[in-house]
Design a protein around this nucleic acid. Structure first.
Lengths: 342, 342
DNA sequence: CTCGTCAATTTAATCGTTACAATTGAATGG
DNA sequence: CCATTCAATTGTAACGATTAAATTGACGAG
């Protein structure tokens, strides 16, 4: 088992017959080194199998090329799609991604923040739940930048990227109104969940814009946003006379509602149209393709990285102060069988 | 925007009126420092909001507390479950996880290896596809340890953890044989895929062990292991007389087969039983719960971390050489509606 | 021939920890 | 009372890079 030899700039410098400074320059700013020297350095580096230590570089520079990604659950497709975007973008920018799964546990989350601070991560992308300003203090204190994901930042918490849930709700409801008429139902999770509340608000807005009284919308609220709860909601809704369309605030509920309605002899989409939210794999896996609101998850992750990189760059240019910004992405409707067009 | 002050052991040392060495000891090996001193150091550290630099520590120690996780696709539930296990275990051991998504691209994979080598990661957990020994050389050369995940290591490639696909196939086929009799069909992906080949081998073994000629098993091979291809296979299989059970080498295929059979008026499970593989969300999301082979994905990730940690520990104890090991986990059958018990 | 200019390179000072060897007292034992 | 031992602490040399400032020549202008 070979131990790690051959390392160090110094060894390369010696072999190439130049100083370490020149080697460093040849590697990092090739343009300021004479071509002949540069080649000699490269050759020496190759010959020695030199692997630069970004650890040493990080120490000297005061920050490592590492981006923290803190999210509640990597097995959740919404988050793993974000992670995918983050990984791709970080890769392009030559940053590493430190994955931290908080499992909705504030203790863990805090531990992760400390870890990132200790690693002198250049920044952290946080999908918060428990992101009270106080927790973020540790990170800030060592100069770690912050980008909030899937939530709009307040005051000067930092940059943020999110998806417009109100618009998503509006789009969904609008589609149902336009294709089926005003007699709609909403199957939603607890309104204490911000996303649920916003999607509902969007749906009501759509109704109002069409001159329909939003209070006329049938609302079913479930505790767990699961297929089974959706099915039960579907069964209940089957009894509603003249029901034209159902908007469910996630795809699990929508799948369940379709199933529940079918059990009661109500056909989807012939009798009732159903729209889901999220565009999970689930939406295409069922026997009936689900019309649903798609979220640019991958882009969310990507943009978060870009904002972070921008923020770091801004800071390095001593001059300009960085201006935090919040980006709100627009979801879009994917029309499938459960609520076809026109 | 506050820059990062308050750092450094030295500051803490000064405030506590001791040397930096003592501060370092108080923090890392509290037991060798007198209690009074220790308290004084802690107090000083707290007062200054001291955040240790694991970067500097890593430089000094020659390795960082960072584990690389290289996998083909984080949005794939199989891999994200592994990642979840890795994240949990790493968290417990106070290691960081550097997420690298290779997207089946050797160029990217190589770049990731280089990145990890430069970061002086303590080790890498690699879910290979493209892991030819040559690629791993860079990592090895800087002393980065390696654990192969979802594949058995050869020779001295390193430790490895995997799941016994042959056994999984055997379990699935055995269940069908025991509950339905010998007239089985197999719906499989390309046999060039190791997992597919192994699951098939297991199924044939089960037949043989029951005294049935494995060549009598109907085999349908598909290019893409998707629901749609499964459906087509199901439609075709509906024509087979006396068909008792179908083993599909993933859950997408199984879902499709159930659908295809149903379309042709064959009822599952009354007329034909269907078993899938993987226990994805899909298995519980459909109208009919899928009997399927469950893989301990989370445990796979966890164990990979443990092996790595063990390997590092072994190496530190100058004495003993580390003995690489391969762990093969056993999958198990989850019985649901598509192929009920007895 | 001298001086300034400029590109190429080197010198040397960090960055924040760790760990080895050396030091300091105080306590123990003969 | 001196010699040991031992626990607690300290001085200091790395670890491997980056970078500001200094140095070196070479060259053209005056």
């Amino acid at each position: 088992m070979s131990r790690n030899r051959a390392s160090s700039l110094a060894a390369v410098a010696e072999l190439a017959g130049v100083s370490t400074a020149t080697v460093s320059n040849a590697l990092n700013r090739p343009e300021i080194v004479a071509e002949a020297t540069r080649e000699r350095v490269f050759a020496a580096a190759r010959q020695l199998g030199y692997v630069p230590s970004s650890v040493a570089a990080a120490l000297r520079r005061g920050m490592s090329r590492m981006i923290g990604l803190v999210l509640p659950d990597i097995t959740n497709p919404f988050y793993s799609a974000i992670a995918d975007g983050v990984a791709d973008a970080a890769d392009e920018e030559r940053y590493g991604v430190a994955l931290c799964v908080s499992h909705d546990d504030p203790v863990r989350e805090l531990r992760h923040f400390e870890l990132l601070a200790q690693q002198r991560a250049v920044g952290a992308l946080v999908v918060p739940l428990t992101a009270e300003p106080s927790r973020l203090a540790t990170l800030r204190s060592v100069g770690t930048h912050l980008v909030l994901v899937d939530r709009i930042a307040e005051r000067d918490e930092g940059c943020s990227v999110a998806i417009d849930d109100v618009l998503g709700g509006r789009i969904a409801a609008h589609h149902l109104l336009a294709t089926r008429g005003p007699r709609l139902a909403l199957v939603n999770g607890a309104r204490s969940i911000e996303q649920c509340e916003n999607r509902r608000a969007g749906a009501r807005k759509a109704l109002r814009q069409s001159g329909v009284d939003p209070d006329g919308m049938i609302e079913v609220t479930v505790d767990d946003m699961t297929i089974e709860e959706g099915r039960r909601a579907g069964v209940r809704l089957a009894a509603s006379p003249q029901l034209a369309g159902v908007f469910c605030t996630n795809d699990q509920l929508a799948t369940g509602v379709v199933r529940g309605l079918s059990e009661q002899g109500i056909r989807v989409p012939e009798d009732v149209a159903v729209v889901g939210y999220g565009d999970l794999a689930l939406a295409t896996e069922g026997p009936l393709g689900l019309t649903t609101v798609e979220q640019p998850k991958w882009l969310l992750g990507r943009t978060a990285v870009e904002k972070l990189v921008q923020e770091v760059a801004d800071q390095q240019l001593a001059g300009a102060q960085h201006q935090h910004s919040a980006t709100l992405f627009q979801p879009s409707l994917v029309v499938r069988d459960s609520a076809p067009a026109g």
